[in-house]
Amino acid sequence: MIELREAKKWFRSGGEKVPVLRGVNLRVEQGEYVAIMGKSGSGKSTLLNLLGTLDTLDGGEYELAGKAVHKMSKRKRAALRNKEIGFVFQHFHLIPNLSVYHNVMLPLTYSKRRWSKKRERVMDLLEQVGLAHKKRQKPSRLSGGEKQRVAIARALVNEPGLILADEPTGSLDEETTESVLHLLDRVHKDGATILVITHDMEVAKRAERILFLKNGVLEEWSDEAAYRV
């Protein structure tokens, strides 16, 4: 599903190149559930943005679902993103002026696929996350847990093969965290590949595999690494 080889990324800071990813290698199979941990500022979000095709590599290669992303045009990447990837962010990133319903509808709006029953599809997903009755509400009137459930419904609406979640429970309390994790478990069971970034060991434990980002490279999980978290 995901194949990242010697991925490099640096940012410019006051004319100086600051490397964030120094050669990341990552392979994730279809249907896997992977967690990535690491210190703040270690480049986890940077890595996730690269995997989500929101940013481009400064070196190395990236293949997603058999396609060479590092060679793709902007337009192709947008289409791939729309079709294959669903995002869940720590701060939900719902569009404040749109209702719950229209937020979930957005990926379908940009889809190249011909969806026959968009309305039904959106309502079905809202049903699944238990928020069908709030479809007309604006995001500002929802609780954090509800917002994240809407964001998950939005991430799923295009039936993507890959879910990328950047600290999805980072803004939630224990109880709502559990409901969000439960939703992700279900998505995983339905066959989606899931990649979660988290600081929370309880969250990471739900994954089948835990990786650790340090000094710009990914390491397999070890007790020594666990100690440092």
Binding site: G52, L54, K74, R75, A78, A79, R81, N82, K83, F87, H93, L94, I95, P96, N97, L106, P107, Y110, S111, R154, N158
Partner: peptide
């Protein structure tokens, strides 16, 4: 700006 980022993350092209 954030809305534009979100739309792009959801698959909106530059042109759209």
């Amino acid at each position: 700006t954030r809305e534009i980022g979100i739309r792009k993350a959801l698959g909106a092209t530059t042109f759209e």
